[in-house]
Design a protein around this nucleic acid. Structure first.
Lengths: 152, 152
DNA sequence: CTATACGCTTACGTAAACGTAAGTGGCGTG
DNA sequence: CACGCCACTTACGTTTACGTAAGCGTATAG
């Protein structure tokens, strides 16, 4: 049952002008492919990060959208805000060498890298502190389980 | 100028019943001592984490409040939410061995430690990815500065 | 008396990234 | 035709930890 729904991406009867060889992907497929929710994809679009074409109201994601989404997800992974990602993407120019984009990317990346390093330092500190706390608490628990209401 | 304001904690004429030897600290002092803002102290109070005594409307922090604040800040440092910190503090019983509190603390700490470990793994991954990105971008920049509009 | 400094309260604003509810529509199937 | 599934839109809700503004009282220095 229900066998003509998955796997066959947009081979149905639509008359959207489409370049040959372009595989259009619908939102459900996209979500599965990239492990995000539909909400997320619509949200990214709302934020101007994605601009899928439409078949009526239905979103159809092109190869480019997939590339963009990959970048978005990479950006998020390394801790960029969506705003940063957008700013970088907006600088993309199909013509030209994109020097500006590259420079901005490099700048943001280096700053973010510095932030991440600081974060890691803090994180390591936190871990040490917590481990210490754990051992202290374990000690107290060991005491208390035998002896009750000792020092105040 | 302005010499009777700092350093001498609450030796002014107030008739608040006070245990001998207790040093009362006002909010400004507290903020400086712990490196937090007044807003933060009031916020913590609002959340039930601190309960300074009052001289009229003025907050006076006791030794205990300082101890509690230390705990709060430690908790925050290791990534506990204020809610967690409160939950733990609320379990404190001046009498008794506080077994319950200790158990909860231990439990939360271990879970948090696990979270931090995961975070560190992700963070390290992110750092590697970013470093890679940086080098790639540097490469492209080096190209582009000589050769313009190459591959699309 | 007046200018500061310090403190108080109430309450809306902020940031990020979606979650979730509510109501609607198109398409293919039994 | 009713059903289920997929998709759409609008829009308010969530979370955390405060920031910040507005307006007002109190105490001290000059």
């Amino acid at each position: 049952m229900n066998m003509m729904r998955a796997g066959m991406p947009a081979a149905t009867a639509n008359d959207v002008p489409n370049e040959p060889g372009e595989e259009l992907t619908r939102i459900g497929e996209m979500a599965k492919l990239f492990g995000v929710t539909l909400r997320t994809l619509r949200f990214y679009e709302d934020k101007g990060l994605l601009k899928p074409i439409r078949d009526g109201a239905t979103r159809l994601y092109t190869h480019r959208d997939k590339a963009r989404l990959k970048l978005i997800l990479l950006g998020r992974k390394v801790g960029f805000s969506l705003r940063d990602v957008k700013q970088i993407m907006d600088l993309y120019d199909p013509a030209g060498s994109n020097m500006r984009q590259l420079k901005v990317t490099l700048d943001k990346s280096e700053k973010q890298l510095a932030r991440l390093d600081r974060q890691r330092a803090l994180l390591d500190e936190a871990i040490v502190d917590l481990q210490q706390l754990v051992s202290v608490v374990r000690g107290k628990l060991a005491d208390g389980s035998v002896q009750n209401a000792a020092a105040n």
